[in-house]
Design a protein around this nucleic acid. Structure first.
Length: 474
DNA sequence: TTAAAGTCAATAGA
DNA sequence: TCTATTGACTTTAA
């Protein structure tokens, strides 16, 4: 499963064939490019493909995706980035005309591609499109044409200040249209974007590390203390969870590719020059995550061990590392931060200046100092922790978590987990050796990983409580 | 119903 | 002007 460059290129070929054979239309799509461009990328989510490629082909993009072999998402994005930069093509243009996505989404996708097996059918679509695009010998040329056309249209518009329909370009046309329709009015109606202050983010991160899945009550408290809307806090947790997960994916991929030297399978740490080979991760994607079930354990477990090991490398970390129970590892996450950090005024009442955000119903000095008695949550293990979330106190449950998590891999019963176990150990040692060579980036990564562990724990616990059958030993 | 996945789109920064 | 980040929203999956 650890996809080697070889296998991926193979996949690429097969996909190419897959695409070309059943629908030669794509081959000749060169002619139909104008047609492609005319497709309004925004339409999206139609049952039929809105974008290029399959314009009139028999196969819809969904079908192609379904039939597609495993693709090397990382490799694909890498190549796409190269092509785009080499030819001075923007993400916006590429996204709108080729993928049917907005610039931001493209940026995100290119920067943090998820491994193929982690993607849903929908999520695979952009990658299949990218692959098809890469396979298209005229890809750049077409995009350049688009670019020229857009520019032309733009110039035209500029001259005739008021653009009428005229639209020939997909994206730009659509935008103009809407803007011209009601310029000012809606401007007012739109609710301003919330921008969390750094202190608020910090507080939320701390809260997350103690409890990735806060109870409604905790969320409520957080919202109150931070002076945020409950929905904002909820959204933040959702986003943070998924983004942390993705961060880990790419960290793993990158780490894996760095010391990809030999067979990705071999657990042996090819320490070689790859100072920080996180061997374990490379296999992450492999078995760990692969299994639909194993959302939890997999890579994260490895990550954890890695983090744990690293934490011992102490020296790299600015003093702060002096922590108490260093050997545990999970804790490392925050230790590094100066406690005071964002702890706001006294009792951790974080009143961060709401930047661009609207004058939220500023709660005067009242505010429940600290989270009242989060203990009532019933979740004993977290009670103490949540109280300190805002105060910045470092009573980390992480430590406790670390213990739990670390035992997970050793008790899991699945074969996959078994092999993983070995890798975990490998990675653990590999890390500790390389520890000293790591630095700041590591600490942040470590933080993320530690945080993610709590997340994992939560899920495992949840799973455990659901399936009595499984003997989870924490 | 809840959480995850996937996106959008506003914005910040280069 | 382009890319990166991120809060919010929509869709999908369990």
């Amino acid at each position: 499963a650890p996809e080697s460059p070889m296998s991926s290129s193979e996949s690429v070929k097969s996909l190419t064939e897959l695409v070309q054979q059943p629908c030669p239309a794509i081959e000749t799509s060169k002619d139909g490019k104008s047609q492609e461009s005319s497709e309004p990328p925004a339409s999206e989510s139609q049952s039929t493909t809105p974008l290029p490629l399959s314009g009139h082909s028999a196969l819809s993009i969904q079908e192609l995706v379904a039939m597609s072999p495993e693709l090397d998402t990382y490799g694909i994005t890498k190549r796409v980035k190269e092509v785009l930069t080499d030819n001075n093509l923007g993400q916006r243009l590429f996204g709108e005309t080729i993928l049917g996505l907005t610039q931001g989404s493209v940026s995100d996708l290119l920067a943090r591609p998820k491994p193929w097996h982690k993607l849903s059918l929908k999520g695979r679509e952009p990658f299949v499109r990218m692959q098809l695009w890469l396979n298209d010998p005229n890809n750049v040329e077409k995009l350049m044409d688009m670019k020229r056309m857009e520019k032309k249209a733009y110039m035209k518009r500029r001259h005739s200040s008021v653009s009428d329909s005229q639209s020939c370009e997909s994206s730009s046309a659509g935008i103009d249209y809407s803007q011209g329709a009601s310029p000012q009015p809606q401007h007012q109606l739109k609710k301003p974007r919330v921008v969390l202050a750094p202190e608020e983010k910090e507080a939320l991160k701390r809260a997350y590390q103690q409890k990735p899945y806060p109870s409604p009550k905790t969320i409520e408290e957080l919202a109150t203390q931070l002076n945020l809307k409950t929905s904002t806090v909820i959204n933040w947790f959702h986003n943070y969870r998924s983004r942390i997960r993705r961060e880990l994916f790419i960290e793993e991929i990158q780490a894996g590719s760095q010391n990809q030297a030999g067979s990705s399978d071999s657990p042996s740490a090819r320490s070689g020059r790859a100072a920080h080979s996180s061997e374990g991760d490379s296999c992450d994607g492999v078995d760990a995550e692969g299994p639909p079930d194993g959302k939890a354990s997999g890579p994260e477990a490895d990550e954890f061990s890695g983090a744990a090991a690293k934490s011992q490398g102490g020296p790299a970390e600015p003093a702060s590392e002096a922590g108490e129970e260093a050997p545990r590892g999970a804790r490392p996450s925050e230790r590094a931060e100066p406690e005071s950090l964002e702890d706001t005024d006294d009792e951790g009442r974080l009143r961060a200046p709401r930047h661009g955000s609207p004058p939220a119903p500023q709660r005067p000095g009242d505010a429940p100092e600290t989270l009242p008695n989060s203990a009532t949550e019933g979740d004993a293990s977290t009670s103490a922790a949540s109280t300190s979330v805002l105060t910045g106190e470092s009573s980390y449950k992480s430590k406790e978590s670390s213990e739990k998590i670390s035992s997970v891999p050793s008790t899991s019963s699945t074969p996959a987990a078994g092999s993983q176990k070995a890798n975990s150990l490998q990675s653990l040692f590999g890390f500790s050796e390389a520890a000293s060579s790591r630095n700041t980036r590591d600490s942040s990564l470590r933080k993320k990983k530690a945080a993610n562990l709590n997340n994992i724990i939560h899920r495992l616990e949840k799973a455990a409580s659901r399936e009595e059958a499984v003997e989870w030993e924490f």
